[in-house]
Design a protein around this nucleic acid. Structure first.
Length: 286
DNA sequence: AAGAGGCCCTGATAGC
DNA sequence: TGCTATCAGGGCCTCT
């Protein structure tokens, strides 16, 4: 699930729990992530103090008391867990699954306040990478579109981007060069909120449609952040306030269920658009 | 050069 | 119960 809202929630947790903590040790159980977790990462980060944690799109950037940054990307299945000294998961600071899984804990960071940060990732599509201070001008950041929550994601920008293109709305919202941070789940939910069907192409958009896409993108993502992001599987929350947005999905995964829009007689349909599942209501999304 | 498709990898689930 | 097939939230690369 790691899309923008989940990374934003994780960022806030990490900031709260790890800011000004010193890394004492990094244990690597499996370095074979999407890119190898190299020895130089461990060497560079040893004894460094975390000064800040920021988010760009679906990426986390950890800042230290020296010029290099640590880029973290969770891929499709990565999760981060903070454990306290009794090895108990600390309440407000985890992402996506309630308990530390037994398998696939690949990287463990040890901190001087006796907490541990564990990186778990069954599919190993995620990765860690050291960045230099000019990182914003290099890949992957140099080719990302604006953050959907930022002012740069506005009517003129969208209008200009889609001019002379022929692409469907689902692909558009998931194109990180267009807008960065929206993935499959939220693309489906945003288009439902706009009453626009995912296969509609951008050349048929009215001004009102464009304004709506911008407004609903911000609204859906902000709401997801407010609810602590989404978790599809095995989610149990002992505080009742983290990661429950999946209960609020209108269309994602709701195949053959009745459309939740008041008065709409439609049933949610699933179609495949460029190899990804798309869910929508054929009655109210036109 | 925009856009489509394959692929990296493991686990959960469905169907037989 | 145990096999096989299918599908999964991302993004990079290659091909047309």
């Amino acid at each position: 699930m790691p899309e923008l809202p989940e990374i934003e929630v994780l960022k806030r947790s990490l900031k709260k729990k790890l800011k000004f903590q010193r890394i004492l040790k990094i244990k690597v159980y499996n370095k074979n992530l999407r890119y190898k977790f190299s020895n130089s990462i461990s060497k560079n980060l040893n004894k460094r103090i975390i000064h800040d944690v920021t988010r760009i799109s679906k990426y986390l950037v950890i800042h230290f008391n020296f010029s290099k940054k640590l880029l973290v990307h969770l891929g499709m299945s990565g999760t981060i867990h903070i454990l306290d000294k009794k090895n108990k998961r600390s309440n407000a600071s985890f992402y996506s699954s309630a308990f530390l899984p037994k398998k696939h804990n690949h990287i463990v960071f040890f901190f001087n306040n006796s907490t541990k940060m564990v990186y778990n990732d069954p599919r190993r599509f995620g990765y860690f990478k050291l960045l230099n201070s000019n990182y914003l001008f290099k890949k992957p950041f140099s080719c990302l579109g604006p953050d959907p929550l930022s002012y740069n994601f506005n009517y003129n920008y969208v209008k200009n981007f889609i001019s002379s293109r022929k692409i469907n709305l689902k692909k558009l919202l998931m194109d990180q060069k267009f807008v960065s941070g929206i993935g499959n789940i939220y693309a489906n939910e945003i288009l439902y909120s706009c009453k626009l069907k995912p296969i509609k192409t951008v050349d048929f958009l009215s001004k009102k449609n464009i304004l709506d896409i911008i407004y609903q993108s911000k609204k859906v993502l902000n709401k997801a952040i407010k609810y602590g992001g989404s978790s599809i599987k095995n989610f149990v929350d002992d505080e009742g306030n983290t990661g429950i947005f999946q209960q609020k999905f209108n269309v994602y995964g709701k195949i053959n269920e009745k459309c939740p829009r008041y008065g709409c007689p439609g049933y949610i349909k699933k179609i495949i658009i460029s190899n990804r599942s798309s869910f929508y209501c054929p009655k109210c999304q036109v």
